[in-house]
Amino acid sequence: MTTPTQSGIVPPFTRETAAKMVRKAEDGWNSRDPQRVSMVYTLDSKWRNRAEFVTGREQIVEFLTRKWRKELDYRLIKELWAFDNDRIAVRFAYEWHDDSGNWFRSYGNENWEFNAEGIMHHRYACINDLPIKESERLYHWPLGRRPDDHAGLSELGL
């Protein structure tokens, strides 16, 4: 994943640049590569993810490594909710299963804040997990980036 500065996306955001930033974030997380994902956060980035607090890239990599060891076949869709100057609000849903084959759809909201270079320095995530049957899954693309023609959250009724 290119860093936001390499892509030229920096605050203040417009609707178009905010939406591009959201898609870049979705693509990165769908790579399930903790090192790659960590590069779009400042060295001292601060997160709240559910009830866990993470500071800095090293802890981000550790957190994501644990996350994707537990959340198997992870597929994520993010959607722009709102933006203003150096902040973006996102809603998202992802599907995954545990090592016992139990499927979940996790719903959440994130609030992001960026520095002047377009690197995220704060991320706050609230997430709820809904057990689903495998037959209720809506995300069926091959692991990795969501295809451009795949429906987003609104189109899926999520």
Rank of each mutant, 00 (worst) to 15 (best):
W103I: 10
E110V: 06
E110T: 08
Y139P: 04
G108Y: 09
P142N: 00
D129N: 09
N115M: 14
N109C: 13
S154F: 14
D129S: 10
N128P: 06
R105T: 11
F114Q: 07
L156W: 07
R123F: 04
G108Q: 11
H140L: 01
N115D: 15
L138H: 06
D149F: 12
D129V: 02
F104W: 15
E110R: 01
F114H: 13
N128F: 13
L130F: 10
N128Y: 13
G144K: 06
W112T: 06
Y124N: 05
L153W: 06
E117P: 10
G152E: 10
S135L: 02
D148M: 10
N109A: 13
F104Y: 15
L130G: 06
E110I: 08
G144L: 04
E136D: 07
H121F: 10
H140S: 07
N111K: 11
E136F: 01
A151H: 09
E155H: 11
N111T: 11
I132D: 02
L130I: 10
I119N: 07
I127A: 05
D149L: 11
L153V: 11
N128R: 09
D149N: 13
H150Q: 08
G144E: 05
G144Y: 00
W112I: 08
W103H: 12
G144W: 01
L153C: 14
G144R: 03
I132C: 07
H122Q: 09
Y139Q: 04
W141M: 00
N115R: 12
G152R: 09
L153Y: 08
H150G: 03
R123L: 02
D149E: 14
P131Y: 01
E110K: 02
E134S: 05
D149G: 08
H121C: 08
R137D: 07
G108S: 09
H121N: 08
P142S: 00
L153F: 09
A151P: 08
W112K: 07
P142W: 01
Y139E: 05
E113W: 11
G108L: 10
R146L: 03
N109W: 12
R123C: 03
Y139A: 05
Y107N: 13
E155Q: 15
H122W: 09
L130N: 12
L153N: 09
G152A: 11
G144F: 02
E155A: 15
Y139R: 00
R105D: 10
G144D: 04
A151R: 08
S154Q: 15
N128W: 13
R137F: 01
H121Y: 11
H121G: 03
